[in-house]
Amino acid sequence: MSTPLVEAVETVEAPDAPARRRRGWRSPSFLVGAALLLAVLALALVSLLWSPYGLDHTDPTARLAGPSPQHWAGTDRLGRDQFTQLMLGARTAMWIGLASVAVAFVIGVPLGLLAAAAGRLAENAVVGVIDIVIAFPTLLLAMLLVTVYGASTAVAISAIGIGVSAEVARLTRISASRVFTQDYVLAARTCGTGPLMILVRHVLPNIWHTLLVQAALAFGVAVIAEASLSYLGLGTPPPAPSWGRMLQEAQSTVSVAPWNVLLPGLAVAVTVVGVNLLGDGLREVLDPQLRQERQAGER
């Protein structure tokens, strides 16, 4: 779960590849990623209206049953329907993922912009803080908070949000300061344009796509973090279902009911792979802009 965001890993992808860009939204990674993510999202949304069984419905006659027409994904050792749990778990994952990314951006983006816009001293200070927060991984932060406040959804969201915000701030600072040193921004500054105006007119339009890709990757990190926290018993407390806790409960019965382990793990993987592909796809789609910016940055 402390997997660092594999940011910029693919930007050097094909330096020697001729300019043969797949244009528009037809990029395969974008399409596959969007499809995977939409499937999970659909599960989560449908669960608001309907699920095969109720949340606390148990079927004592069918404990640890394999997949069947009654229980599409089998049941756990209490006889709870696993498909229902998966659907509701999707809801938890999506909600905590989105909320954490929101927290991360609300903290990280202004911090990064501040660092880029401010003078050297403030920049160093903010960079220092970012470094320390990066050294302070989400998991440890969550453990600190849970010790004092007990496990809750809010604590999970805050811990993941703060943990991810450091990476968001770092990236925002780097891409924003690249814009700040551009000639046209310098020109605007000499003409007396205020910093806020520069931010709105020049910086944000130039970095939003980088941030969008980052948001996708951060969502994946948040989903894995949420699953890890619930697996350790530090996430959303019962009865709200979560993929991580499903895995924790299924671990003890893995010898008789391995499918109970398989499905929640796949659910996490599908979500994360989906969102990573979506990020790659977005990068490809937005590439012309990114490339121009990169070339401009090299000058």
């Binding site: 890890s228 895995l247 382990v261 993987a269």
Partner: peptide, 12 residues
């Protein structure tokens, strides 16, 4: 491998 939770890999 990056997308799979480490504990899931462990259980498997």
């Amino acid at each position: 491998g990056i997308a799979l939770p480490i504990f899931w890999v462990g259980i498997m």
